[in-house]
Design a protein around this nucleic acid. Structure first.
Length: 934
DNA sequence: ACGCTCACG
DNA sequence: GACGTACGTGAGCGTA
């Protein structure tokens, strides 16, 4: 083949790091499979999306003239001959990724982009060779990658582009990262080594030190020659002893610019894709991308390739477009009756309520949407008013709506019909809205909770996001209808013509998600979790939230006044100590006062240039005898109590009920815990004496008492069970002081007369283990030297070997499966577990903690679900859950019975699904208020 | 909108 | 003297 022009001046070559694209795509997307045959294609889908976006972006601005995607051929390269351990400890590729590699090559060729790989060489080497050749020919090069190993190539017309951050990496950025220019990057890397790739480097020397050394001596050879001149004895010794290892490291990180190439630069000239692209995308069954590419190319998208096995199913659900015009507005009873007849025929209905606000206790019903099959949905407007107020200042009800009473009379039977399944997204909200007007919706399914059972840890479970991700459809945004911020209006002021497509679409999306997720629950083996731990919680929580807890405004208000006075006093003192007035609530100003003006030691600036002024730092300063930080700590405590609790809580007292109605999010926390919002009643103070008094404002009604029951040490008990720790289990069976027992076991001291300090340390270690302990973390928590902390941990692992096994096995499971499981089968996904960098540490600790925290969450969920039936005949209500505690309100006479019943439910909550090898113990308390009940 | 700080288990 | 680190949450405030 011949070309008009040879590559040279004025040409611009883009080199794309294909392997990086693949891995990013694989981890960014859920495990999608091809509908017709189940072939895993998530990574290919992501790869194609990225390539398409790249192609579109590349057309504008600094456009390339030539482009290639470079892949790694296999894991064995010439570097393994130099150093067998190189990249040896890389985890095996996930099974579902392997078959996708050849497909990404096919995809690249389908985009009509050159696709290069060479046996025995890494993609980085090929990139190096191509970049050098292009540069030598007088052209420019951009490497699309963020891999630091490629940074040695930057300079003289070669730069990099980080595709994630869309950030250009030139000489300055390389210098920022390595402390040296691109020419010396290899030297720094050779010294620092790389634990991820198993490049040994010089032990104990990192990038910072390496950069210093190279800056001082000019280059690596000079440094190694003159190593004996280094002043620091440790460094000198390391360099002298490991000179060979460092030289080998350099050969490992040095890219081979002479890698043989069997392509010419000219052959990389940009070409438009042809029909084979559409064929490929279609064969992969990427509907949305096929459509988008077709639009861009101005051609008709081909009909989806029919595959015998899946034709029927595929046509029924996924390919149906969302047609807003097809949605009906229901204005007459007869019309609604027709819809209800269809619902009975189908046996299920997806529904959604439209209201005037997010607070179910205060919002008013505006309309209801229904959907029976994908695409077939309607909206029943009930309380829409004119957008602007009339002359008398009131909004006028608009024409063309059924009376609420008429509509509800028709809907109530079907919503309560045990033979008709009602499907909603976040059903608790809609159930509460309808419960307020006398409709007890049942039975239900909840697509938000289905997603939670399937995807906890992967993403949030809001409907819009799920629709985008799993239906490839962006629903109408509510913002477009009601606006945002100050000019926001309520939904009842939205014109029916605008409201109908929005509302009906929500029901439509819900139904399609339901159809999609239902079979997935089985495949992911989370049907039982969904049916026993998620769905049944909806009515239980709805009742608790509607019950609310009585809060005495007077008490709060009185406390608020006292706090205000105390704050004012403290503020005066603080200003006097500082020598000038300033905003005590501003960490920035406080930092400047402490560390700049007063010149106190120990100020460290964080990444955004501000001094840290956290409680731990201020406590250290206070311990040195400084008054100002001590006063600020006092001020902060009072300020927190006032603003977050005594003030804000008053605003949450419902005007009609005189009670506070929190809202629990079932799918908020990754581990299965609930989260309480608006207000958060799971973080009411208890640890400090002053804060605990806030709980005195949470009171029982007349003739009633509050009863609190909480699991004793539930997470440690679960740990003892899961990790099989005989000594701990025995201690729990005997009812011993678990932390004292741990201390006795670890330090070989007698249980009797245990030193409280030793016990405190054992306690910290016990909790640390649950959190995925590190020497650093324990040292900081206990304020002891890091080496001592590490010593404790080592001894702990020695005495309780089951812990190490549990941790190792949990991590291995997470790496192999991408998720961990609780004892009850709850699945918590760990997408970051195979990531590199500091994120890996977080992911590991989260994976260790999740089965323990999650199992505890499952247990209290089971107790809550069984509770209503167990106490149905008692004048008692369950009000709050605080992770390991349940709070009840009960008539005084029945308190003892309630405690006995509720305790039995809680202590036996794991039966019969899981037989725990430790007893669960529940402590109980009662009193006129929450402080007294605790 | 985002980070800091701090309340809880 | 590599890096950064206990797990899970929500709310109020100051700062940008």
């Amino acid at each position: 083949m011949t070309f008009d022009t040879t590559f040279g001046q004025g040409h611009h070559l883009h080199l794309i790091d294909g392997s990086a694209f693949i891995f990013r795509a694989y981890h960014a997307l859920p495990p999608l499979t091809r509908k017709s045959d189940g072939l895993p294609i998530g990574a290919v889908a992501g790869f194609c999306n990225m390539l398409f976006r790249y192609v579109e972006d590349a057309k504008s601005g600094d456009a390339p003239t030539h482009v290639a995607v470079i892949f790694d051929h296999s894991s064995k390269t010439f570097r393994n001959e130099i150093y067998p351990a190189y990249k040896a400890q890389r985890p095996d590729l996930p099974e579902d990724l392997k078959p996708q590699f050849p497909l990404t090559r096919e995809a690249t060729r389908a985009f009509n982009i050159a696709c290069i790989e060479t046996e025995g060489f890494e993609a980085d080497d090929i990139i190096a060779a191509l970049a050098c050749r292009a540069r030598d020919a007088g052209g420019r090069v951009t490497i699309i990658s963020s891999d630091k190993d490629l940074m040695q190539l930057v300079g003289d017309g070669v730069e990099m582009l980080d595709p994630m951050k869309n950030k250009r990496i030139g000489r300055d950025e390389v210098f920022e990262k390595f402390g040296v220019g691109p020419e010396r990057v290899v030297d720094v890397q050779a010294l620092a080594g790389d634990s991820v790739d198993n490049v040994p480097g010089a032990p104990g020397i990192g990038i910072k030190t390496a950069a210093l050394l190279i800056q001082e001596y000019g280059d690596l050879d000079t440094l190694l020659e003159r190593a004996s001149e280094i002043k620091q004895p440790k460094r000198r010794q390391v360099l002298l002893e490991h000179a060979d290892q460092i030289r080998i490291s350099r050969r490992l990180v040095q890219l081979d610019r002479d890698t043989p190439l069997d392509v010419t630069l000219e052959s990389l000239e940009i070409r438009e894709p042809d029909d084979s692209l559409m064929d490929f995308l279609n064969a992969m069954e990427f509907r949305t991308l096929t459509k988008r590419v077709a639009e861009k190319r101005g051609v008709e998208p081909p009909l989806p390739a029919p595959t015998p096995a899946a034709t029927v199913e595929a046509e029924e659900i996924a390919p149906l477009p969302f047609d807003h015009a097809a949605y009906e507005v229901v204005t007459e009873p007869a019309q609604l009756a027709e819809w209800i007849a269809v619902i009975h025929e189908v046996g299920h209905v997806a529904f959604d309520t439209e209201t005037t606000g997010l607070d179910e206790m205060r919002a008013e019903l505006v309309g209801i949407s229904l959907c029976v099959t994908a695409g077939r949905a309607c909206y029943i407007p009930l309380a829409h008013v004119t957008g602007t107020d009339d002359l008398f200042g009131g909004a006028q009800r608009v024409e063309g709506q059924m009376l609420i009473s008429e509509a509800l009379a028709l809907l109530k039977p079907v919503m309560e019909d045990p033979a008709v399944l009602k499907i909603a997204h976040n059903a608790k909200y809609d159930c509460k809205m309808l419960a307020r007007i006398g409709i007890a919706v049942a039975p239900i399914d909840d697509t938000m909770l289905m997603s939670y059972a399937l995807h906890a840890g992967l993403h949030n479970h809001g409907m819009d996001a799920l629709s985008e991700q799993y239906l490839r459809h962006t629903p109408i945004a509510i913002k477009g209808l009601i606006g945002s911020g100050k000019s926001q209006i309520t939904f009842d002021r939205v014109a029916i013509a605008d409201a109908a497509p929005y509302a009906a679409e929500d029901a439509d999306v819900t139904l399609r998600l339901w159809e999609l997720f239902r079979p997935q629950l089985h495949r992911a083996r989370v049907t039982t979790v969904y049916e026993t731990l998620e769905r049944p919680l909806v009515p239980v929580l709805a009742d608790m939230e509607m019950a609310g807890v009585r809060v005495d405004r007077e008490t709060l208000s009185r406390m608020s006044g006292a706090f205000a006075q105390k704050m004012a006093m403290l503020e005066e003192e603080i200003h006097a100590l500082a020598g000038r007035p300033f905003n005590v609530g501003s960490p920035k100003q406080l930092g400047e006062i402490l560390f700049d003006e007063m010149g106190l030691q120990g100020g460290t600036k964080g990444k955004n240039g501000a001094y840290g002024t956290g409680a731990d730092i201020l406590e250290d300063l206070a311990a040195e005898g400084h008054d100002l930080p001590a006063r600020v700590l006092d001020w902060r405590q009072v300020s927190k109590l006032k603003s977050t609790y005594t003030d804000a809580l008053q605003d949450h007292v419902h005007p009609d009920t005189g009670r506070v109605h929190t809202s629990y999010s079932i799918a908020g926390a990754n581990t299965g815990r609930l989260a309480s919002t608006d207000p958060n009643l799971q973080n009411i103070p208890v640890r400090s004496e002053e804060g605990r008094r806030i709980r005195e404002a949470f009171v029982a009604g007349p003739g009633k008492v509050l009863v609190s029951l909480d699991y004793s040490q539930i997470e440690l008990r679960i740990l003892a069970h899961i990790a099989d720790l005989p000594a701990l289990k025995e201690a729990f069976r005997q009812g011993h002081d678990i932390h004292a027992m741990t201390a006795a076991e670890m330090f070989n001291v007698p249980l009797e007369g245990m030193d409280p300090m030793i016990r405190r340390q054992a306690k910290a270690i016990n909790f640390g283990v649950i959190y995925g302990i590190s020497g650093f973390g324990l040292a900081r928590n206990l304020r002891i030297p890091r080496a001592d902390a590490q010593g404790f941990i080592d001894r702990y692992f020695e005495r309780f070997p089951g812990i190490r096994t549990y941790m190792d096995e949990t991590i291995a499971f997470a790496k192999a499966n991408g998720h961990v499981l609780t004892l009850f089968g709850r699945r918590i996904n760990t997408p970051e577990i195979n990531a590199r960098g500091p994120g890996a540490g977080f992911a590991r600790r989260a994976a260790i903690n999740a089965p323990i925290q999650g199992t505890a969450a499952d247990i209290i969920r089971r107790a809550m679900i069984r509770m209503p039936a167990a106490i149905a005949d008692l004048p008692a209500r369950m009000l709050l859950q605080v992770h390991d505690e349940l709070l009840f309100e009960v008539e005084e006479d029945a308190a003892d019975t309630l405690i006995a019943r509720a305790r039995a439910v809680m202590e036996n909550a794991s039966d019969p699904a899981v037989k725990l090898s430790v007893p669960l113990i529940v402590d109980a308390g009662r009193g006129p208020n929450w402080a007294a009940a605790h």
